[in-house]
Amino acid sequence: MANNPLPAKVDLGASAAKGFSHPIWAARADRLQSASGVLLGLFIIMHLHFESSILLGKEAFYYVVQFLEGGIFSETGHGYPILTQVFSAFMLVVVMIHAVFALRRFPTQIGQWRALRQQLHFLPHEDTKIWFWQMVTGFLLFFLAPVHLFTMIMNPEIGPHLSAERVYHDNAWILYVFLLPAVVVHAIFGLYRVCVKWGLVQQRFALLKFAKVLVVYLMIIGIASLVTYIVIGRTLELPIIPFVPTL
């Protein structure tokens, strides 16, 4: 008689899935990726604002740093740079968690990569394009962010002059030129995606527009701060004397 393809009563969950494909890890990975991403994204927005306080003058930046390093608790009033070290180490861990879970999204086979390129070429679509750039920036950040964080762990001194020294005299600006756009694009569109992914926002196009505005804004303050540090750095002579506000 006719060959009957029976409706497959297959239990997909029971398929021999390993790693993140395992049903328990699938949900967990998605949640952890989003949670770590949100943490990093929000941190980046704050971070960029803190360091761009230099735009308001060396004093402003000094007080921000002093406050964040717990200056009011220290006898010298300068705070504890070790806080920066500890925090940087913690962020490094978060970045690693985020990277590990985000990596499952990467096209790992040449065929997948080709399919993605073809899709982008033949069926251009904005959100897909945005994701593509998120993926590219994510890949860059995988290398750039740890470099930055290691620097901060090894050399945690922050201040109007100390930071300017790092930027200008230690040539960290080269790192920041790549790091800044990558991290802004990745973080802001990442936050946008988390919102639509979990259904936190219904007005998607308004949100996307907001995200784009935010990217431009963060880029402007980021670049302006970077330029400011370079300008400050050029006026300083080695060895650097840390900035202390004149009372």
């Binding site: 239990d11 494909s21 049903p23 994701w131």
Partner: peptide
């Protein structure tokens, strides 16, 4: 959950939303 609670299902979706933007019936995919 046994059917779509995995990498091939809802946790494999990267929310690129090509589905929603192209759907000729304007279904609320997102």
């Amino acid at each position: 959950y046994h059917v779509i609670g995995n990498q091939d299902g809802v946790f494999g979706c990267m929310t690129l939303l090509g589905c929603q933007d192209a759907c000729p019936k304007d279904l609320p995919h997102m």
